[in-house]
Design a protein around this nucleic acid. Structure first.
Lengths: 221, 221
DNA sequence: ATCCTTGTGTGAGGTTTATCACAGACGGGC
DNA sequence: GCCCGTCTGTGATAAACCTCACACAAGGAT
Protein backbone atom coordinates (compact mmCIF):
# COMPACT_ATOMS: atom_id res chain seq x y z
CA UNK A 1 0.00 0.00 0.00
CA UNK A 2 1.22 3.49 -0.84
CA UNK A 3 1.07 6.62 1.24
CA UNK A 4 -0.69 9.62 -0.22
CA UNK A 5 2.51 11.49 -1.07
CA UNK A 6 3.79 8.57 -3.13
CA UNK A 7 0.42 8.25 -4.75
CA UNK A 8 0.33 11.86 -5.85
CA UNK A 9 3.87 11.68 -7.19
CA UNK A 10 2.88 8.62 -9.17
CA UNK A 11 -0.12 10.33 -10.70
CA UNK A 12 2.01 13.37 -11.44
CA UNK A 13 4.55 11.34 -13.39
CA UNK A 14 2.07 9.02 -15.07
CA UNK A 15 -0.87 11.15 -16.22
CA UNK A 16 -2.39 8.15 -17.96
CA UNK A 17 -3.15 6.66 -14.56
CA UNK A 18 -5.51 9.55 -13.91
CA UNK A 19 -7.61 8.39 -16.83
CA UNK A 20 -8.25 5.03 -15.24
CA UNK A 21 -11.59 4.39 -13.55
CA UNK A 22 -11.20 5.12 -9.83
CA UNK A 23 -11.97 1.51 -8.94
CA UNK A 24 -9.27 0.21 -11.28
CA UNK A 25 -6.74 2.67 -9.97
CA UNK A 26 -7.42 1.79 -6.36
CA UNK A 27 -7.26 -1.90 -7.09
CA UNK A 28 -3.98 -1.42 -8.85
CA UNK A 29 -2.42 0.70 -6.15
CA UNK A 30 -3.51 -1.74 -3.49
CA UNK A 31 -1.13 -4.29 -4.98
CA UNK A 32 1.71 -1.81 -5.32
CA UNK A 33 4.66 -1.32 -3.04
CA UNK A 34 7.31 1.38 -3.09
CA UNK A 35 10.75 -0.09 -3.66
CA UNK A 36 14.16 1.53 -3.49
CA UNK A 37 17.51 0.49 -4.91
CA UNK A 38 20.99 2.04 -4.56
CA UNK A 39 23.16 2.92 -7.55
CA UNK A 40 24.85 -0.11 -9.04
CA UNK A 41 22.08 -2.56 -8.28
CA UNK A 42 21.54 -5.10 -11.03
CA UNK A 43 17.78 -4.95 -11.44
CA UNK A 44 17.70 -7.75 -14.00
CA UNK A 45 20.13 -9.67 -16.14
CA UNK A 46 20.11 -11.65 -19.35
CA UNK A 47 18.12 -14.86 -19.26
CA UNK A 48 16.35 -14.02 -16.06
CA UNK A 49 12.58 -14.35 -15.97
CA UNK A 50 10.58 -11.22 -15.42
CA UNK A 51 9.11 -10.22 -12.04
CA UNK A 52 6.63 -7.48 -12.82
CA UNK A 53 6.02 -4.14 -14.42
CA UNK A 54 7.99 -1.22 -12.92
CA UNK A 55 6.92 2.42 -12.76
CA UNK A 56 9.85 4.72 -11.97
CA UNK A 57 9.37 7.55 -9.49
CA UNK A 58 12.94 8.81 -9.32
CA UNK A 59 16.45 7.88 -10.33
CA UNK A 60 17.43 6.16 -13.56
CA UNK A 61 18.19 2.75 -14.97
CA UNK A 62 20.68 1.88 -17.68
CA UNK A 63 19.76 -1.00 -19.95
CA UNK A 64 22.86 -2.49 -21.49
CA UNK A 65 24.22 -5.37 -23.51
CA UNK A 66 27.66 -6.63 -22.65
CA UNK A 67 30.10 -8.41 -24.92
CA UNK A 68 32.25 -11.45 -24.33
CA UNK A 69 35.35 -9.25 -24.03
CA UNK A 70 34.13 -7.08 -21.18
CA UNK A 71 32.91 -4.20 -23.27
CA UNK A 72 29.39 -2.92 -22.95
CA UNK A 73 26.91 -0.84 -24.88
CA UNK A 74 23.98 1.10 -23.54
CA UNK A 75 20.73 0.38 -25.32
CA UNK A 76 18.68 3.02 -23.57
CA UNK A 77 18.01 4.70 -20.27
CA UNK A 78 14.80 4.51 -18.27
CA UNK A 79 13.73 7.67 -16.44
CA UNK A 80 10.86 8.66 -14.14
CA UNK A 81 7.57 8.66 -16.00
CA UNK A 82 8.77 5.77 -18.10
CA UNK A 83 8.84 2.07 -17.66
CA UNK A 84 11.19 -0.56 -18.93
CA UNK A 85 9.81 -1.73 -22.23
CA UNK A 86 12.02 -4.76 -22.11
CA UNK A 87 10.01 -5.83 -19.11
CA UNK A 88 6.74 -5.37 -20.95
CA UNK A 89 8.20 -7.39 -23.75
CA UNK A 90 9.07 -10.19 -21.35
CA UNK A 91 5.66 -10.12 -19.77
CA UNK A 92 3.82 -10.04 -23.08
CA UNK A 93 5.87 -12.68 -24.79
CA UNK A 94 6.48 -14.66 -21.63
CA UNK A 95 10.18 -14.71 -22.49
CA UNK A 96 13.30 -13.80 -20.57
CA UNK A 97 15.30 -10.60 -20.40
CA UNK A 98 17.72 -10.12 -23.26
CA UNK A 99 19.77 -7.42 -21.57
CA UNK A 100 20.98 -6.19 -18.21
CA UNK A 101 19.42 -3.38 -16.18
CA UNK A 102 21.68 -1.47 -13.81
CA UNK A 103 20.61 1.32 -11.47
CA UNK A 104 22.44 4.51 -12.40
CA UNK A 105 20.99 7.04 -9.98
CA UNK A 106 19.31 5.66 -6.84
CA UNK A 107 15.92 4.36 -7.80
CA UNK A 108 12.44 4.62 -6.36
CA UNK A 109 9.81 2.61 -8.14
CA UNK A 110 6.48 0.86 -7.94
CA UNK A 111 6.32 -2.70 -9.12
CA UNK A 112 3.08 -4.00 -10.57
CA UNK A 113 2.65 -7.77 -10.45
CA UNK A 114 2.46 -9.49 -13.84
CA UNK A 115 -1.18 -10.41 -13.30
CA UNK A 116 -2.12 -6.77 -12.69
CA UNK A 117 -0.17 -5.72 -15.76
CA UNK A 118 -2.07 -8.18 -17.93
CA UNK A 119 -5.43 -7.29 -16.54
CA UNK A 120 -4.79 -3.55 -16.99
CA UNK A 121 -3.75 -4.15 -20.58
CA UNK A 122 -6.95 -6.04 -21.23
CA UNK A 123 -9.26 -3.60 -19.50
CA UNK A 124 -7.78 -0.13 -19.64
CA UNK A 125 -7.43 1.76 -22.88
CA UNK A 126 -5.21 4.54 -21.42
CA UNK A 127 -2.80 2.01 -20.00
CA UNK A 128 -2.69 0.18 -23.29
CA UNK A 129 -2.01 3.40 -25.15
CA UNK A 130 0.80 4.15 -22.72
CA UNK A 131 2.45 0.77 -23.28
CA UNK A 132 2.13 1.05 -27.05
CA UNK A 133 3.63 4.50 -26.90
CA UNK A 134 6.61 3.19 -24.96
CA UNK A 135 7.10 0.44 -27.49
CA UNK A 136 7.15 2.81 -30.43
CA UNK A 137 9.58 5.16 -28.73
CA UNK A 138 12.02 2.42 -27.83
CA UNK A 139 11.76 0.94 -31.28
CA UNK A 140 12.63 4.30 -32.79
CA UNK A 141 15.51 4.77 -30.37
CA UNK A 142 16.89 1.34 -31.14
CA UNK A 143 16.71 1.89 -34.87
CA UNK A 144 18.64 5.10 -34.51
CA UNK A 145 21.16 3.37 -32.30
CA UNK A 146 21.70 0.62 -34.84
CA UNK A 147 22.34 3.05 -37.65
CA UNK A 148 24.62 5.16 -35.47
CA UNK A 149 26.69 2.14 -34.50
CA UNK A 150 26.76 0.85 -38.06
CA UNK A 151 27.46 4.03 -39.98
CA UNK A 152 28.79 6.77 -37.75
CA UNK A 153 32.35 7.24 -36.60
CA UNK A 154 33.00 7.35 -32.93
CA UNK A 155 33.82 11.05 -32.87
CA UNK A 156 30.38 11.77 -34.29
CA UNK A 157 28.62 9.57 -31.79
CA UNK A 158 30.63 11.07 -28.95
CA UNK A 159 29.82 14.58 -30.14
CA UNK A 160 26.13 13.72 -30.26
CA UNK A 161 26.27 12.28 -26.77
CA UNK A 162 28.02 15.34 -25.35
CA UNK A 163 25.64 17.74 -27.05
CA UNK A 164 22.63 15.82 -25.73
CA UNK A 165 23.61 15.83 -22.06
CA UNK A 166 23.00 18.71 -19.68
CA UNK A 167 26.06 20.84 -19.14
CA UNK A 168 28.46 20.38 -17.42
CA UNK A 169 28.64 16.63 -17.77
CA UNK A 170 29.69 14.64 -14.74
CA UNK A 171 31.05 11.28 -15.88
CA UNK A 172 34.25 9.32 -16.23
CA UNK A 173 35.65 8.58 -19.66
CA UNK A 174 35.08 4.92 -18.93
CA UNK A 175 31.39 5.52 -18.30
CA UNK A 176 31.10 7.35 -21.62
CA UNK A 177 32.97 4.58 -23.41
CA UNK A 178 30.52 2.08 -21.92
CA UNK A 179 27.60 4.11 -23.14
CA UNK A 180 29.05 4.21 -26.66
CA UNK A 181 30.25 0.62 -26.67
CA UNK A 182 33.90 1.56 -27.13
CA UNK A 183 37.14 1.69 -25.13
CA UNK A 184 38.22 4.29 -22.61
CA UNK A 185 41.41 5.34 -24.40
CA UNK A 186 39.55 6.16 -27.59
CA UNK A 187 37.13 8.38 -25.74
CA UNK A 188 39.97 10.12 -23.91
CA UNK A 189 41.78 10.82 -27.17
CA UNK A 190 38.68 12.07 -28.95
CA UNK A 191 37.82 14.32 -26.01
CA UNK A 192 41.34 15.69 -26.12
CA UNK A 193 40.77 16.48 -29.77
CA UNK A 194 37.53 18.31 -28.97
CA UNK A 195 39.33 20.23 -26.23
CA UNK A 196 42.08 21.21 -28.68
CA UNK A 197 39.37 22.57 -30.98
CA UNK A 198 38.03 24.57 -28.06
CA UNK A 199 34.71 22.75 -28.11
CA UNK A 200 34.92 21.41 -24.56
CA UNK A 201 36.86 21.94 -21.35
CA UNK A 202 38.05 18.85 -19.53
CA UNK A 203 38.34 18.23 -15.81
CA UNK A 204 38.40 15.22 -13.60
CA UNK A 205 35.02 13.49 -14.00
CA UNK A 206 33.74 16.61 -15.67
CA UNK A 207 33.28 17.80 -19.24
CA UNK A 208 32.08 21.29 -19.96
CA UNK A 209 30.70 21.84 -23.43
CA UNK A 210 31.69 25.29 -24.69
CA UNK A 211 30.67 24.94 -28.32
CA UNK A 212 27.58 22.83 -28.58
CA UNK A 213 26.91 23.95 -32.15
CA UNK A 214 30.24 22.59 -33.39
CA UNK A 215 29.57 19.26 -31.70
CA UNK A 216 26.13 19.00 -33.20
CA UNK A 217 27.48 19.86 -36.62
CA UNK A 218 30.09 17.12 -36.39
CA UNK A 219 27.42 14.70 -35.19
CA UNK A 220 25.18 15.24 -38.20
CA UNK A 221 27.92 15.43 -40.83
CA UNK B 1 -13.56 -7.07 -51.33
CA UNK B 2 -11.66 -10.33 -51.33
CA UNK B 3 -12.44 -13.53 -53.15
CA UNK B 4 -12.84 -16.67 -51.10
CA UNK B 5 -9.45 -18.10 -52.03
CA UNK B 6 -7.67 -14.99 -50.81
CA UNK B 7 -9.78 -15.01 -47.71
CA UNK B 8 -8.86 -18.57 -46.83
CA UNK B 9 -5.17 -17.91 -47.45
CA UNK B 10 -5.39 -14.92 -45.15
CA UNK B 11 -6.99 -16.94 -42.37
CA UNK B 12 -4.42 -19.66 -42.90
CA UNK B 13 -1.51 -17.26 -42.44
CA UNK B 14 -3.06 -15.20 -39.66
CA UNK B 15 -4.71 -17.64 -37.25
CA UNK B 16 -5.51 -14.79 -34.89
CA UNK B 17 -8.06 -13.52 -37.40
CA UNK B 18 -10.05 -16.69 -36.84
CA UNK B 19 -10.53 -15.70 -33.23
CA UNK B 20 -12.27 -12.49 -34.18
CA UNK B 21 -16.08 -12.34 -33.93
CA UNK B 22 -17.51 -13.14 -37.34
CA UNK B 23 -19.07 -9.70 -37.63
CA UNK B 24 -15.75 -7.99 -36.96
CA UNK B 25 -13.94 -10.16 -39.41
CA UNK B 26 -16.46 -9.51 -42.16
CA UNK B 27 -16.41 -5.78 -41.50
CA UNK B 28 -12.63 -5.81 -41.65
CA UNK B 29 -12.41 -7.83 -44.82
CA UNK B 30 -15.00 -5.64 -46.49
CA UNK B 31 -12.50 -2.76 -46.35
CA UNK B 32 -9.61 -4.87 -47.56
CA UNK B 33 -8.20 -5.07 -51.04
CA UNK B 34 -5.57 -7.41 -52.41
CA UNK B 35 -2.51 -5.51 -53.60
CA UNK B 36 0.52 -6.72 -55.52
CA UNK B 37 3.96 -5.22 -55.98
CA UNK B 38 6.95 -6.34 -58.06
CA UNK B 39 10.42 -6.85 -56.59
CA UNK B 40 12.27 -3.59 -56.06
CA UNK B 41 9.19 -1.53 -55.24
CA UNK B 42 9.83 1.02 -52.51
CA UNK B 43 6.85 0.44 -50.26
CA UNK B 44 7.72 3.31 -47.95
CA UNK B 45 10.65 5.57 -47.27
CA UNK B 46 12.00 7.65 -44.42
CA UNK B 47 9.88 10.59 -43.40
CA UNK B 48 6.83 9.42 -45.29
CA UNK B 49 3.52 9.28 -43.46
CA UNK B 50 1.92 5.91 -43.02
CA UNK B 51 -0.91 4.63 -45.21
CA UNK B 52 -2.31 1.64 -43.40
CA UNK B 53 -1.61 -1.69 -41.83
CA UNK B 54 -0.33 -4.42 -44.18
CA UNK B 55 -0.90 -8.16 -43.90
CA UNK B 56 1.49 -10.10 -46.12
CA UNK B 57 0.17 -13.06 -48.12
CA UNK B 58 3.29 -13.89 -50.10
CA UNK B 59 6.70 -12.48 -50.98
CA UNK B 60 8.95 -10.55 -48.63
CA UNK B 61 9.90 -7.03 -47.68
CA UNK B 62 13.29 -5.77 -46.56
CA UNK B 63 13.30 -2.94 -44.03
CA UNK B 64 16.55 -1.03 -44.23
CA UNK B 65 18.38 2.06 -43.09
CA UNK B 66 20.73 3.70 -45.54
CA UNK B 67 23.73 5.84 -44.74
CA UNK B 68 24.83 9.12 -46.20
CA UNK B 69 27.62 7.34 -48.04
CA UNK B 70 25.50 4.91 -50.03
CA UNK B 71 25.82 1.96 -47.71
CA UNK B 72 22.81 0.26 -46.27
CA UNK B 73 21.93 -2.06 -43.41
CA UNK B 74 18.98 -4.38 -43.16
CA UNK B 75 17.00 -4.00 -39.95
CA UNK B 76 14.68 -6.94 -40.51
CA UNK B 77 12.66 -8.81 -43.08
CA UNK B 78 8.88 -9.07 -43.17
CA UNK B 79 7.42 -12.40 -44.32
CA UNK B 80 3.94 -13.81 -44.89
CA UNK B 81 2.08 -14.15 -41.62
CA UNK B 82 3.79 -11.05 -40.32
CA UNK B 83 3.18 -7.38 -40.62
CA UNK B 84 5.52 -4.45 -40.63
CA UNK B 85 5.86 -3.34 -37.04
CA UNK B 86 7.31 -0.06 -38.18
CA UNK B 87 3.96 0.65 -39.72
CA UNK B 88 2.16 -0.15 -36.49
CA UNK B 89 4.55 2.15 -34.77
CA UNK B 90 3.74 4.94 -37.19
CA UNK B 91 0.03 4.39 -36.81
CA UNK B 92 0.15 4.21 -33.04
CA UNK B 93 2.45 7.13 -32.50
CA UNK B 94 1.14 9.05 -35.49
CA UNK B 95 4.72 9.58 -36.60
CA UNK B 96 6.53 8.99 -39.86
CA UNK B 97 8.54 6.06 -41.12
CA UNK B 98 12.12 5.97 -39.90
CA UNK B 99 13.35 3.49 -42.46
CA UNK B 100 12.84 2.28 -46.01
CA UNK B 101 10.84 -0.76 -47.06
CA UNK B 102 11.78 -2.47 -50.30
CA UNK B 103 10.03 -5.45 -51.87
CA UNK B 104 12.44 -8.34 -52.10
CA UNK B 105 10.29 -11.11 -53.53
CA UNK B 106 7.11 -10.06 -55.35
CA UNK B 107 4.54 -9.14 -52.77
CA UNK B 108 0.87 -9.89 -52.28
CA UNK B 109 -0.73 -8.15 -49.35
CA UNK B 110 -3.89 -6.84 -47.79
CA UNK B 111 -3.85 -3.27 -46.57
CA UNK B 112 -6.06 -2.34 -43.64
CA UNK B 113 -6.94 1.36 -43.42
CA UNK B 114 -5.62 3.16 -40.35
CA UNK B 115 -9.11 3.60 -38.93
CA UNK B 116 -9.77 -0.13 -39.11
CA UNK B 117 -6.43 -0.83 -37.48
CA UNK B 118 -7.25 1.45 -34.56
CA UNK B 119 -10.71 0.09 -34.09
CA UNK B 120 -9.49 -3.51 -34.16
CA UNK B 121 -6.86 -2.66 -31.56
CA UNK B 122 -9.49 -1.17 -29.32
CA UNK B 123 -12.04 -3.92 -29.72
CA UNK B 124 -10.29 -7.18 -30.47
CA UNK B 125 -8.12 -8.89 -27.94
CA UNK B 126 -6.62 -11.44 -30.39
CA UNK B 127 -5.60 -8.68 -32.75
CA UNK B 128 -4.05 -6.73 -29.89
CA UNK B 129 -2.14 -9.78 -28.76
CA UNK B 130 -0.88 -10.26 -32.29
CA UNK B 131 0.41 -6.71 -32.52
CA UNK B 132 2.07 -6.87 -29.11
CA UNK B 133 3.70 -10.12 -30.11
CA UNK B 134 5.09 -8.52 -33.24
CA UNK B 135 6.47 -5.65 -31.22
CA UNK B 136 8.29 -7.89 -28.79
CA UNK B 137 9.78 -9.99 -31.56
CA UNK B 138 11.08 -7.02 -33.47
CA UNK B 139 12.43 -5.45 -30.32
CA UNK B 140 14.34 -8.63 -29.57
CA UNK B 141 15.64 -8.83 -33.12
CA UNK B 142 16.79 -5.24 -33.05
CA UNK B 143 18.60 -5.66 -29.75
CA UNK B 144 20.43 -8.64 -31.14
CA UNK B 145 21.26 -6.70 -34.26
CA UNK B 146 22.69 -3.81 -32.25
CA UNK B 147 24.95 -6.06 -30.23
CA UNK B 148 26.05 -7.94 -33.33
CA UNK B 149 26.95 -4.72 -35.12
CA UNK B 150 28.67 -3.32 -32.04
CA UNK B 151 30.63 -6.33 -30.84
CA UNK B 152 30.94 -8.96 -33.53
CA UNK B 153 33.46 -9.05 -36.32
CA UNK B 154 32.15 -9.20 -39.83
CA UNK B 155 33.29 -12.76 -40.42
CA UNK B 156 31.16 -13.86 -37.48
CA UNK B 157 28.12 -11.98 -38.68
CA UNK B 158 28.59 -13.30 -42.19
CA UNK B 159 28.92 -16.85 -40.90
CA UNK B 160 25.71 -16.44 -38.89
CA UNK B 161 23.89 -15.11 -41.93
CA UNK B 162 25.05 -17.97 -44.14
CA UNK B 163 24.16 -20.59 -41.56
CA UNK B 164 20.69 -19.10 -41.13
CA UNK B 165 19.67 -19.11 -44.79
CA UNK B 166 18.31 -22.10 -46.64
CA UNK B 167 20.89 -23.87 -48.74
CA UNK B 168 22.03 -23.14 -51.41
CA UNK B 169 21.90 -19.37 -51.06
CA UNK B 170 21.03 -17.38 -54.12
CA UNK B 171 22.37 -13.85 -53.70
CA UNK B 172 25.06 -11.50 -54.92
CA UNK B 173 27.91 -10.52 -52.65
CA UNK B 174 26.61 -6.97 -52.85
CA UNK B 175 23.21 -8.04 -51.55
CA UNK B 176 24.85 -9.77 -48.62
CA UNK B 177 27.01 -6.75 -47.92
CA UNK B 178 23.86 -4.60 -47.88
CA UNK B 179 22.23 -6.94 -45.44
CA UNK B 180 25.24 -6.75 -43.14
CA UNK B 181 25.86 -3.04 -43.60
CA UNK B 182 29.31 -3.53 -45.07
CA UNK B 183 31.10 -3.34 -48.43
CA UNK B 184 31.08 -5.85 -51.25
CA UNK B 185 34.84 -6.44 -51.33
CA UNK B 186 34.96 -7.40 -47.68
CA UNK B 187 32.21 -9.95 -48.14
CA UNK B 188 33.93 -11.38 -51.21
CA UNK B 189 37.19 -11.75 -49.34
CA UNK B 190 35.60 -13.31 -46.29
CA UNK B 191 33.65 -15.73 -48.47
CA UNK B 192 36.88 -16.67 -50.19
CA UNK B 193 38.31 -17.40 -46.78
CA UNK B 194 35.36 -19.64 -45.91
CA UNK B 195 35.76 -21.42 -49.26
CA UNK B 196 39.46 -21.98 -48.56
CA UNK B 197 38.46 -23.57 -45.26
CA UNK B 198 36.09 -25.82 -47.19
CA UNK B 199 33.05 -24.42 -45.42
CA UNK B 200 31.28 -23.16 -48.55
CA UNK B 201 31.37 -23.56 -52.31
CA UNK B 202 31.11 -20.39 -54.35
CA UNK B 203 29.41 -19.85 -57.69
CA UNK B 204 27.97 -16.91 -59.51
CA UNK B 205 25.08 -15.60 -57.39
CA UNK B 206 25.20 -18.79 -55.43
CA UNK B 207 26.76 -19.93 -52.18
CA UNK B 208 26.52 -23.53 -51.07
CA UNK B 209 27.15 -24.14 -47.40
CA UNK B 210 29.04 -27.40 -46.93
CA UNK B 211 29.96 -27.08 -43.26
CA UNK B 212 27.19 -25.36 -41.41
CA UNK B 213 28.55 -26.43 -38.03
CA UNK B 214 31.85 -24.64 -38.60
CA UNK B 215 30.04 -21.47 -39.59
CA UNK B 216 27.81 -21.59 -36.54
CA UNK B 217 30.78 -22.16 -34.31
CA UNK B 218 32.58 -19.14 -35.71
CA UNK B 219 29.42 -17.09 -35.32
CA UNK B 220 29.06 -17.83 -31.62
CA UNK B 221 32.74 -17.57 -30.74
C1' DA C 1 30.06 -15.13 -82.12
C1' DT C 2 30.44 -10.67 -80.18
C1' DC C 3 29.14 -7.23 -77.22
C1' DC C 4 27.75 -5.65 -72.83
C1' DT C 5 26.10 -5.78 -68.45
C1' DT C 6 26.68 -7.59 -64.13
C1' DG C 7 29.15 -10.13 -60.80
C1' DT C 8 33.56 -11.55 -58.75
C1' DG C 9 38.72 -11.65 -57.37
C1' DT C 10 42.42 -9.19 -55.67
C1' DG C 11 46.16 -5.87 -54.61
C1' DA C 12 47.70 -1.55 -52.45
C1' DG C 13 47.15 1.93 -49.29
C1' DG C 14 44.72 4.46 -45.84
C1' DT C 15 41.59 5.30 -41.83
C1' DT C 16 39.56 4.05 -37.76
C1' DT C 17 39.37 1.60 -33.76
C1' DA C 18 41.27 -1.66 -30.40
C1' DT C 19 44.90 -3.20 -27.31
C1' DC C 20 48.75 -2.97 -24.29
C1' DA C 21 51.63 -0.58 -21.39
C1' DC C 22 52.75 2.80 -18.41
C1' DA C 23 53.25 7.50 -16.38
C1' DG C 24 51.35 11.18 -14.21
C1' DA C 25 47.46 13.72 -11.88
C1' DC C 26 43.83 14.26 -8.75
C1' DG C 27 41.33 13.80 -4.61
C1' DG C 28 39.57 11.40 -0.55
C1' DG C 29 40.77 9.16 3.73
C1' DC C 30 43.99 8.62 7.38
C1' DG D 1 50.59 16.24 5.38
C1' DC D 2 50.92 11.64 2.86
C1' DC D 3 49.20 7.43 0.76
C1' DC D 4 46.57 5.08 -2.39
C1' DG D 5 42.99 4.07 -5.42
C1' DT D 6 40.90 6.02 -9.34
C1' DC D 7 41.03 8.72 -13.39
C1' DT D 8 43.38 10.53 -17.33
C1' DG D 9 47.05 11.21 -21.08
C1' DT D 10 49.82 9.15 -24.47
C1' DG D 11 52.88 6.26 -27.32
C1' DA D 12 53.53 2.08 -29.92
C1' DT D 13 51.52 -1.51 -32.34
C1' DA D 14 48.18 -4.17 -34.54
C1' DA D 15 43.71 -5.61 -36.26
C1' DA D 16 39.72 -4.78 -38.89
C1' DC D 17 37.65 -2.58 -42.27
C1' DC D 18 37.13 0.70 -46.09
C1' DT D 19 38.19 2.64 -50.57
C1' DC D 20 39.97 2.78 -55.01
C1' DA D 21 41.45 0.58 -58.95
C1' DC D 22 41.29 -2.64 -62.25
C1' DA D 23 41.22 -7.36 -64.37
C1' DC D 24 38.64 -11.05 -65.43
C1' DA D 25 34.48 -14.20 -65.77
C1' DA D 26 29.78 -15.51 -66.68
C1' DG D 27 25.73 -15.19 -69.09
C1' DG D 28 22.19 -12.84 -71.68
C1' DA D 29 20.99 -10.00 -75.78
C1' DT D 30 21.67 -8.90 -80.56
Amino acid sequence: MLNSDTRSRLLQLYPMLRELPAAELDAMLATARLMQFPAGTVMFDENQPCQGFPLLLSGSLRVIKSSAHGRELQLYRVKPGESCILTSSCLLGDTRYQARGIVEEPLEMIMLPATVFHSLLGKCEPFRRYVFQLFTERLTDLMELVTAVAFQKLDQRLAALLAAKSNPIHATHQAIADELGSAREIVSRLLKGFADQGWVKLGREQITVTNSAALKKLATL
